[in-house]
């Protein structure tokens, strides 16, 4: 696969603090890469070093197959960036800010096109200061792609957004992938990485502790799924006998641990029905990146 970015042993130290401590990355063209980790893990420092905002202490960075000592104008023309907390000029209107940023690049996408693409038509004459968090992020995304970049860096793009706004932004990011863009995003939301990423790098204390596709990372865990269910009116029944000791009762909920979710679900429905029981509530908990992180570090992502 053609690598648009390759990083070897990247380090960024601030005196005693090792913000980034020997990171290797290989990012293929057209991929969505998620750098997942808790706050302070070194995600932002890593991508800001790649963007040229910080000088690395050591390590090698390759852009489009060529080694770079600093991120110069030529590279800046080909990358788009959404910073973690970039506030734009607050008294500019949406279309004005997109136009202004467009004016800083040789290649630019028309403002109208971006306004349509990111559903900003209704807000194009609204001042930035009057936008909601989600709308601001969409403007930031529009500004990040105003130069039709090959690589787009998104630093925690959905932090602080409500679920609906987050979902809208995910759709926009997926659109970028369809356009053939390479997207590198940092996040501490495991569901975001699971939903969007082709490849995930889990980072902690400035080091990559795991990498791979979501499925690969979870499969390495060798963890079972758990089916939780409750019975209508909390009727007592001999669950141990019926389910042959595969079910346990914890805090009023029956828990069935299995590696074969579909087969087990059929079994639960059949056996409860044949015993005249009605299932009131049921849900399945599959192992996820949170479990991967917990397994690797002994801590939660949100700690």
């Amino acid at each position: 696969m053609e690598h648009v970015i390759k990083v070897n042993n990247l380090k960024k130290h601030y005196k005693e603090i090792k913000a980034v401590d020997g990171i290797d990355l290989e990012i293929g063209k057209g991929q969505i890469i998620a750098i997942l980790g808790p706050n302070g893990a070194g995600k932002t420092t890593t991508i800001e070093t790649l963007e040229g905002l910080r000088k690395p202490t050591s390590g090698e960075i390759y852009y489009f197959g060529s080694k770079v000592n600093s991120v110069d104008e030529k590279i800046k023309e080909r990358i788009g960036v959404q910073l973690q907390s970039s506030t734009f000029f607050p008294n500019l209107k949406v279309h004005e800010i997109i136009q202004s940023f467009g004016g800083l690049y040789k290649k630019r996408v028309s403002t109208e096109l971006l306004i349509d693409k990111f559903n900003l038509k209704e807000k194009e004459d609204t001042y930035i200061k009057n936008l909601s968090g989600g709308q601001k992020q969409r403007v930031a995304l529009a500004c990040a792609v105003v130069n039709d970049p090959d690589i787009i860096f998104l630093d925690e793009p959905t932090t602080g957004l409500d679920p609906q706004a987050r979902r809208h932004l995910w759709d926009s990011i997926e659109e970028l992938k369809k356009d053939g863009k390479t997207v590198i995003l940092t996040t501490h939301y495991m569901e975001e990485a699971e939903y969007l990423a082709d490849k995930v790098y889990i980072i902690d204390h400035g080091k990559i502790i795991a990498k791979g596709t979501v499925a690969e990372l979870i499969s390495k865990l060798e963890m079972s799924s758990v089916i939780f269910f409750t019975i209508e009116n909390n009727i007592n029944f001999n669950y141990k006998k019926i389910f042959e000791n595969k079910v346990t009762l914890i805090n009023g909920k029956y828990e069935y641990e299995t590696n074969f979710v579909e087969k087990s679900l059929i079994e639960i429905f059949e056996k409860t029905k044949s015993n005249g029981l009605t299932i009131e509530d049921l849900h399945v908990r599959k192992p996820n990146l949170e479990n991967v992180f917990l397994h690797l570090t002994g801590r939660s992502l949100r700690e």
Binding site: E51, S86, T87, F101, L104, Y105
Partner: peptide, 14 residues
């Protein structure tokens, strides 16, 4: 403070 200069510095503007 609001990262406006930082945001501009990622563009090709010097």
């Amino acid at each position: 403070q609001n990262g406006i200069f930082k945001r501009i510095s990622i563009t090709p503007a010097k």
